[in-house]
């Protein structure tokens, strides 16, 4: 294991994959000499050259379209979208072309492309700080990956760069300042493999991306009160590792989902619904952003988003409600 900055784990994954697969090309704003908005492509232009590491104009629609077309025609493009908010501009080629290509061509064409985007709030305000994972998981044909550690950024990005179809890899601004352990040898994190970050018997809390770290903090708060929360980091938003999730809620009987995106039709809403279908009597609660845009004001930003205290409070409420229900049933 080596401890690497988040960006270094990304650069290492890309570099190794580009070395292995000459059809991988990178396209995005400021990724060449500048080395990426988060310095996550530093050194790649120098190593792999201008033909494989291409700066694009500020034009997300054509950037994603280029990736989709190039993927259909034999390359394996990695398109960088600085903030996931801007992916809205490039959704047409992603959703209308790449995601449907294998199906609509009867498997004669595929679009093995990766869109890498950065989500999450860190003072950037309404259109630079959203979390749109649930929009993307709604689209058949798209794989959505979201690491919360350097090691998973490395392992998931390598998986993405070998995937048969379009992958949206979403990281989070608050992960970049952190370091994390990365395996020294090649270790891929497969799709649909959630990670149990902390074991617990009272409730299961499912989160992904930066909210996994927030949830681990919340679990520490709960532990002081004698509540043992099992924390599961999805890592793969779609496809979901249902088996790991189901096994956990069968042990705990309670599920809290936590995400930075909206609760309405959110990642957690889907997970809670499916697990309730699988397990009679499962008690669920969800926590996401309040129904308001993200603000650049730190006060409004943190008002909108879950933090460790709110996660812990939701967990307490869920367990308390469950106890009251039990009392109501027995009396």
């Amino acid at each position: 294991m080596s401890r690497l900055f988040f960006r270094e784990a990304i650069a290492r994954a890309i570099s190794e994959e580009m070395q292995r697969d000459p059809t991988i090309i990178l396209m995005g704003q400021d990724i060449a000499e500048h080395g990426g908005s988060y310095a996550e492509t530093r050194g790649l232009f120098e190593r792999f050259g201008a033909a494989r590491v291409r700066n694009t104009p500020v034009a997300e629609a054509v950037t994603v379209g280029l990736a989709a077309g190039a993927a259909a025609a034999g390359l394996r493009p990695l398109a960088f979208i600085t903030y996931v908010d801007f992916l809205m501009i490039g959704l047409d080629p992603l959703v209308n072309y790449a995601a449907k290509l294998k199906f609509k061509s009867a498997a004669q064409l595929t679009a093995p492309m990766v869109v890498k985007a950065t989500a999450g709030a860190k003072g950037q305000g309404p259109t630079h700080a959203q979390s749109l994972d649930s929009w993307l998981m709604n689209v058949p044909g798209i794989t959505v990956l979201a690491p919360s550690t350097s090691g998973d950024a490395y392992g998931l990005l390598k998986t993405a760069l070998r995937a048969p179809g379009p992958v949206v890899y979403i990281d989070h601004k608050r992960l970049f300042p952190l370091g994390g352990e990365v395996p020294d040898g090649e270790t891929l994190v497969p799709v649909a493999s959630a990670a149990i970050r902390r074991e617990g018997r009272h409730l299961t809390i499912v989160a992904h991306s930066y909210m996994s770290l927030v949830t681990i903090e919340a679990a520490k708060l709960l532990a002081k009160e004698g509540i043992e929360a099992e924390v599961i980091d999805l890592r793969s938003v779609w496809p979901v590792d249902w088996d790991t999730l189901e096994a956990s809620v069968r042990r705990t009987g309670h599920l809290l989902t936590v995400e930075e995106g909206q609760e309405v039709c959110g990642v957690g809403t889907e997970i809670a619904f499916v697990l309730q279908e699988r397990l009679d009597g499962l008690r669920v609660a969800r926590l996401g952003a309040r129904r308001m845009p993200v603000s650049a004001s730190p006060v409004l930003e943190s008002y909108a988003l879950p933090d460790a205290e709110r996660v812990a409070a939701s967990a307490r409420r869920l367990l308390q409600r469950a106890r009251q229900d039990d009392v109501a049933v027995t009396t």
Partner: peptide, 28 residues
């Protein structure tokens, strides 16, 4: 579409094939 004869396909979104075609050209 019929890739075996180089037909990468029609696209139902008006103007939606333009950037995709640029990508196909990039691959060439």
């Amino acid at each position: 579409s019929m890739p075996s004869i180089g037909l990468y396909g029609a696209h139902g979104v008006v103007a939606g094939n333009l950037s995709v075609a640029a990508g196909v050209a990039l691959a060439q």
